[in-house]
Design a protein around this nucleic acid. Structure first.
Lengths: 333, 333
DNA sequence: TTGAAAGCGTTACCAA
DNA sequence: TTGGTAACGCTTTCAA
């Protein structure tokens, strides 16, 4: 009997040293391409390391030369193109700083988010992303880590937020519709939370600014199918609508499909304007008119702010942490 | 003069211990919610930690309790929906094992890939993904780390591969086309490497199996625009084509667009079959017929194999590392 | 060119 | 309930 349950012991630098008949600093030198080492010695060490299957411990290494940082990026659903764009931007910004990004997809489930935060604290130097837990719980789970919330306001000092200001963009969208003669404009809001979304508020404000009654609203799940169902429902209740603004592009694309199925030609019979400005919107037919967000800035700012929070180099202030949105007229309205 | 260039020293557990007037193990207990500690002591420690802004070193912690693993996932372009799906699957598989995934987007540039691998070795326990560097260079850069290549064969013992077998799927696609009466079938191959792709070989084999001359081929960049241009070029050279098989869905979607612009109605005037089976293919009009890959398995298998390689628990063997593909008939053919 | 010793910041194992 | 001491595996500094 030789096995004892603890599994094979890790191969350490000392094992390599012993095998090569040198000291461990010599091994370190050989492996890290420092000079000050004889060619044959180096080769012998390298061979020994290979033979033993030695892999340096990243923890031990990180402990002694404290020069690497990593952010935990928490997203609800990487397959949602919007989050993909934000994530890609965050990766890019992090690469620019030499930071590493550990990505967690919570699948839009709160328990997963909780589990992620629980485990994240010991893996990263800062947390960035879309979080839905209450602030005090986030604070508790993340211990002392800096946290940057995207598209969500914070109260606690410990947190920072990257906010979206779509007010001007949505106003432009509604003006665009009214200029085209639309008077009956509806909205497809999201269905996740109980209160109406901020985008809904912008919509209402824009409507009244244009002298229109607050439009009719249906709630849609954040998916193409959700948009499909919701438009169908909205039009059933309000057949007189000639234009619809949606919470986001995904929902708008669903609406596009539903409109086609219902025999409503877009934009002739029904004008559609989305929100987000996804690339995806240019791939559908007709191409989606949308209130476009700078998703790149969203992800990049989040990482940037995390970096500043961590290094103590003057964090950005609220007005620099807001991303605007502008109407991008394509074909659907 | 008080500043000396080295920046503020890190707050350690000893600082907290001193501030709270306890030993460092007591601090450790308080912070990790172990029992065996007085309530008031615990509170005092927690307060001190908060006041000092103490954050435990993840390296020191990882060093002592060696129970966390992470994979580096290297992809060429997260914004490409295909890679997004693979990445999402990898994240999911990793979560199941309690692994962390550090994601790197190389932007399809070799220097970035090189830079990534260079830095990755000290951050992760295994590397998984799409790599384009020569094997020996990968081996050198990744030191002793296990490496799992996706969609690429390996020679070295150090590596493992997740392979795609699309042969049967492509055969089915061509049979589907011939059954519909198509005789002049072309292909849009990718333009990246110099040799024809493996998918091209499957195409040729399928064509001759159906008794057809090896079709006409154009090369397309891996983008919607690339597909657009390539189809235009292909049809200019071979106006008699009635069907086209493409290297992947992205290119097919570009082809779809080009066909529309050229006044060729799909599938009536031109049948189109893609490869990959992206969700995106269901959002376009007409919905894309495609040879669908199980992208989830791709990502999941890669992580699974990395885990096995690392823990030494019998790595999967080649036949279990192959992902099949099947024809998914939708509307474009 | 090589080696010995001293950390890096934490948790685990005992003893008090 | 608390504290002392010994790891954890590596790199750095200083001597040889």
């Amino acid at each position: 009997m030789t096995s004892s349950g603890t599994g094979p012991r890790r191969v350490t630098i000392d094992d390599v040293a012993e095998a090569a008949g040198v000291s461990r600093q010599t091994v370190s030198r050989a492996l890290n391409d420092k000079g000050e080492i004889g060619v044959s010695t180096k080769q012998r060490v390298l061979d020994a390391a290979l033979a033993l299957g030695y892999r340096p411990s990243r923890f031990a290494r990180g402990l002694v030369r404290q020069d690497t940082f990593s952010v935990g990026l928490v997203i609800p659903d990487l397959l949602n193109p919007f989050f993909t764009e934000v994530a890609a931007a965050a990766l890019d910004a992090a690469r620019g700083r030499g930071w590493h990004v550990v990505v967690y997809d919570t699948g839009d489930r709160v328990e997963e988010e909780r589990g992620t935060l629980e485990v994240i604290a010991s893996q990263v130097d800062a947390v960035v992303g879309y979080l839905s837990l209450p602030e005090d719980e986030i604070a508790r789970l993340t211990r002392g880590l800096p946290v940057v919330l995207i598209d969500r306001k914070h109260r606690s000092e410990r947190f920072s937020s990257i906010l979206i200001d779509g007010e001007a963009g949505v106003h432009a969208a509604i003006r665009h519709l009214t200029a085209a003669g639309h008077r009956h404009i509806g909205m497809l809001d999201h269905a996740e939370r109980s209160e109406p979304s901020v985008r809904h508020e912008w919509f209402d404000a824009a409507m009244s600014a244009c002298g229109l009654d607050s439009g009719s609203v249906a709630r849609a799940d954040q998916s193409v199918e959700g948009g499909e169902r919701a438009l169908q429902e909205l039009l059933a209740r309000h057949p007189d609508l000639t234009a619809v603004f949606t919470f986001n592009d995904i929902i708008a694309i669903g609406a596009l499909r539903a409109a086609r199925r219902l025999g409503r030609q877009v934009p002739r019979d029904l004008a559609l304007i989305g929100f987000d400005g996804l690339r995806l919107g240019t791939l559908v037919e007709p191409q989606l008119t949308t209130v476009a967000l700078d998703t790149r800035s969203l992800g990049a700012l989040a990482v940037e702010q995390a970096a500043r929070l961590l290094t103590g180099s003057g964090p950005l202030h609220s007005d620099q942490l807001t991303v605007g949105a502008e109407l991008r007229v394509r074909e659907s309205a």
